[in-house]
Write a protein that binds this DNA or RNA. Structure first.
Lengths: 348, 348
DNA sequence: CGCTCGCACTAGAACGTTCCAACGGTACGT
DNA sequence: ACGTACCGTTGGAACGTTCTAGTGCGAGCG
């Protein structure tokens, strides 16, 4: 009832408009508009009448018209890069799901666009915002020197970053996860298990995220009076690199545990252990980062640092809302704590 | 150059409109509109002049206004259910990435919305289409009796399904992957490896997708004159079920190989083998379905059937385009072939 | 009583685009 | 020479909403 489409004479279907509702309720269009957007302005009986008409006609406001008039689309843009097959990184996918959930509560929707051309950071962003297709962006790839962030800041485009601004002069809101705290928790966990020679396998030095995560390990080691010299390796983020780095470290430094900057690298370590007949957890402990789905699916399981992406998404949307309503650009950030999920790869 | 925003007197920024371009080029608004949408209507020199003005002003058409006038948004809606942690299923995520790529070429964008309330199939869909927020939908979850598909068909909402219509009377375009062909290939591969006692672990009988995949296995077994009695198990799609089913089958039917309806179930089998000290590939072969990222990350690797989601996305968008331009609703479908990715879990 | 104030509501304009009907001009056929 | 057709272009209307400036009316106050 009331959900039927309004039929016009030639059999084609068309949707009811504000004017239709207004006519039925015996009020002006503006009053109907107010009933939807500022109900408190109406007298109780009028509101009731308008609402009855809306329900009876099955009226839904036309987004295009509303967008045109208000110059906003209630759409948040997110650039999605092609699926990375060879890494275990599912964080972006978890984040997409979480963002969809979080935006719903704020009556926003997520618009995905293509990030195929990393050479041109403005590609995609520019057209979308200039055509009023989206109100703002969520930027997730601030790590690679973040050309997007700088570009968007220059253009005055509203956005919130998932990831800290690693350039000093950046002035935008951001939400991030404390990677150092995560690796620190992993290291402390291994220390509690009795390990003292704990190695690090991370990314190359030009990755600020990698250096952050590394800092958690080294800080905690030093905090316990343990040396880190010769126990660290910095490689590409792929399984093969993890295998190789683990091999070198096992031969030269004889660690009894590995803290890794990613699940992908941790997977490489597990492969190396497998090849040498060493048992994960019992002989050598391993921890990863990101808690990819397969971390819990591996036989025994992989201990990993889990990012609270749901909370990140909620915070991002919250900041986005403030940014878009108050029009204040305040460059504050929030740092969230990850949690360590302990599984078989780090317990005897 | 030409990418600056047009500044108005009070310092606020506003974007150039068709009228601005028309004034600069010395033509009417309609001519500028034609220059963008029907360039062939213009004389060469006029077109040149208009294009120069567009470039100089950095003009981008306003989507909201265009959407309002044309009653279309060039947005495709996709309902995204919450992230499933405990299964290995990354197919939906791969598909999202692929769809973003595919829609780009057709100048569409993907709008994600929430699928939190499975009880009400119309939840979300209805508002989006009635408010002209999206032109059409891609429906991915046709498997559970697909209430969405029926609802959308009744409402005359354009959509294309990723997945066959399992109800006989369905009349909508669809694209799907031939699951039976995939399990058939897996079974044939195991037969070629010398296995004859090949077990099946699949889903409960009420899943048409599961029955389809199962048919590929049984068809191929029978085609080689091999019995299937006692070699099949139907369980929930989770790791624990896979472990249990593999245990029961190993005890009672003594298979030397397992074909599974999902990577999740295959993972369960691997766990069972691990617990019994049996080596995947050498002692007992295992194949999965969906080629989740961890299939290639596992030590040795998991042989799996890979769905060509990129091709699915392209086909879906193609059909969507036809549906939206020609307005013809022809209920034809396309069945694509999956490929078997052979890894260590099925080779000695 | 007259004035102001606030309440509930209204009429018209505006947002920026595309659709529609029509324009003047040239080329063609009869 | 005249009607017809087409080409390139134009001005005005329309899409459905919200913004702006107001209207009528009753209450409060000197």
């Amino acid at each position: 009832m009331g959900r039927e489409l309004h039929r016009v004479q030639d059999g084609a279907t068309s949707l009811p408009t504000l004017a239709d509702v207004a006519a039925m309720a015996g009020v002006s269009r503006q009053t109907v508009s107010n009933a939807l957007n500022n109900p408190s302005l109406l007298r109780a009986d009028t509101l009731e009448r308008v609402r009855a008409a809306i329900a009876h006609l099955g009226y839904t406001p036309n987004r295009a018209a509303r967008n045109l008039r208000t110059k906003s689309s209630r759409l948040i843009g997110l650039r999605l890069t092609p699926f990375a097959e060879d890494t275990a990184n599912a964080t972006i996918d978890r984040f997409v799901h979480a963002l969809v959930q979080a935006t719903r509560a704020a009556d926003y929707h997520v618009l995905l666009f293509d990030g195929n051309d990393p050479a041109d950071p403005s590609s995609g962003y520019d057209d979308l915002v200039r055509s009023t297709a989206v109100d703002a962006f969520v930027v997730t790839d601030t790590f690679k020197g973040s050309p997007q962030a700088a570009y968007l800041e220059d253009g005055g485009v509203p956005f919130v970053a998932f990831g800290r601004p690693w350039t000093p002069a950046a002035l935008h809101p951001w939400v991030d996860v404390d990677g150092a705290a995560g690796t620190s928790a992993a290291t402390a966990h291994l220390l509690a298990q009795g390990h003292t020679r704990i190695a690090w396998i991370g990314w190359r030095k030009d990755s600020p995220i990698g250096e952050d995560r590394r800092a958690g390990w080294s800080r905690t080691m030093h905090g316990h009076g343990l040396p880190t010299t010769g126990l660290a390796s910095r490689v590409e983020d792929c399984v093969a690199s993890g295998v190789e780095a683990a091999g070198v470290l096992l031969d030269e430094a004889r660690p009894t545990a590995f803290v890794c900057a990613s699940d992908t690298l941790a997977t490489g370590v597990l492969h190396q252990l497998h090849a040498r007949g060493l048992r994960p957890g019992r002989d050598v402990a391993v921890t990863g980062f990101d808690d990819a789905p397969f971390a819990q699916l591996l036989p025994g399981g992989l201990t990993s640092v889990r990012q609270p992406v749901e909370e990140v998404a909620v915070q991002v949307v919250d900041r986005l809302g403030k940014l878009l309503t108050h029009r204040e650009v305040f460059a504050s950030g929030t740092l969230l704590e990850p949690t360590l999920v302990v599984r078989g790869s780090s317990e005897r």
